[in-house]
Design a protein around this nucleic acid. Structure first.
Lengths: 225, 225
DNA sequence: TATATTTTATGATATTTGTCATGTTACATA
DNA sequence: TATGTAACATGACAAATATCATAAAATATA
């Protein structure tokens, strides 16, 4: 099992503010695991008892609506952490985490990391800043959900995926999401998502090969009405 | 000008974790002000340079969507604080604050309170916990926006207003929001909000007197489909 | 009090989105 | 390779919601 001290991924999250000693301790008690695409890491309503650090792969954080449909609240990517909110509040998880592709994750038990939260101001400040960032992102999404059309939200999501995960050598989005995933990200029916993608295709905004998607005209896509 | 040490309102927010000394210092540098209904306290995009504490009255925190419509992201009530996110992140405000009724607020300059954030673990932990709570609330709203109908969201909002602000002696909601406010809370057109309220009235779920609203059947209102 | 202005209300209609049905394609696996 | 299954696609229709128009009621202001 590799050590946190040598893990590049921690540079992307709050763990980078830990001292050498703290990191050694954290490393000693962490557990790593390999997660297969589709696997559930934790469920809404579960108590987490620690935080997860994403070493590889992508994961969707979803919440079940009262009507039984799942809504993607955000994506956790390489370097991201999951469960900070529960760590801080001591509450059960508000979200379910499902692997979108194969992943490697590490788990740090609550009691180990809570100690650092109390003792290391740099660490708690960094957690606080990231929470503030998450809050802003969530509020922005809220406004988009409330005020934008499904078409606009889908266009925006495609651009987000390209910006965040880049494209492969053929120009297709490097992250492959199912139509169903797109639908639960923008908050619509799967058929509607598919229909709008077809429309984008007809209008030359995107092209597809199987389930892969390539953005052909980012300018116009960002201006969809 | 009254002193923070004697202000009951601080018991409801993070300021209660400050020590006597810290509180005296904060009290000495704070400024109080009276805000009239409709007044703007700060605008999206402005840098805040401090935090606000709501002593009296209610305030809506809104964000302008790209299509030019305002969306209410949350309400700040007595005891609430505004601007913590900007305080923590150092960024400009993400939201606009508009008084819904006459208010009294206090402003604490950034440099004074940032010091406590660094020095007082109880304070920073409390801020962190509240930010975590805000994040959960925001994520929940996001899911509601994405997955529930306008009718469900409006019913939910009416219940929220009654639960949070109580009713007056005649049973009407103690907080009077305009139909326009309701529309920007649930994220719909004003006409749609009005229409649905009329429908609720016909169904006996609510009754109205002028702009005042009384919930007549909370059970059924919470089960609207 | 009279008048202007804003807020609330409702009809008519267009647009958006969801739902159900059905077919097609891609992909996994025996 | 054959075959089953899941993902993708599209038509037809229903429901939800937005938009525009207009009027009534409430409220502010002269």
């Amino acid at each position: 099992m590799s050590k946190c001290e040598q893990c590049i991924v921690r540079q992307f999250n709050s763990l980078k503010t830990l001292t050498k000693e703290e990191l050694v301790r954290v490393s000693a008690c962490k557990t790593s695991s390999v997660i297969k695409k589709g696997d559930i890491i934790f469920r809404e309503g579960e108590s987490l008892n620690g935080i997860y650090c994403v070493r590889e792969g992508v994961c969707k954080l979803t919440k079940l609506s009262d009507n039984g449909k799942e809504q993607v609240v955000k994506l956790a990517i390489k370097g991201g952490m999951m469960g900070q909110r529960s760590l801080v509040s001591g509450e059960i998880s508000n979200l379910t985490a499902v692997a979108i592709n194969d992943m490697q994750i590490c788990f740090i038990p609550r009691q180990e990391i809570v100690r650092d939260l109390q003792k290391n101001v740099n660490f708690s400040m960094d957690i606080l800043k990231r929470m503030a960032q998450d809050l802003k992102t969530s509020e922005d999404s809220l406004v988009n959900m409330a005020q934008k059309t499904v078409k606009q939200r889908l266009a925006q999501t495609l651009i987000y995926v390209q910006t965040t995960f880049d494209i492969d050598q053929d120009g297709y989005l490097a992250l492959n999401l199912s139509r169903d995933d797109y639908a639960s990200i923008v908050g619509t029916a799967t058929e509607s998502a598919i229909r709008i993608l077809s429309q984008f295709k007809k209008e030359g905004l995107i092209s597809t090969k199987g389930k892969q998607i390539k953005i052909e005209n980012l300018q116009d896509l960002s201006r969809v009405e």
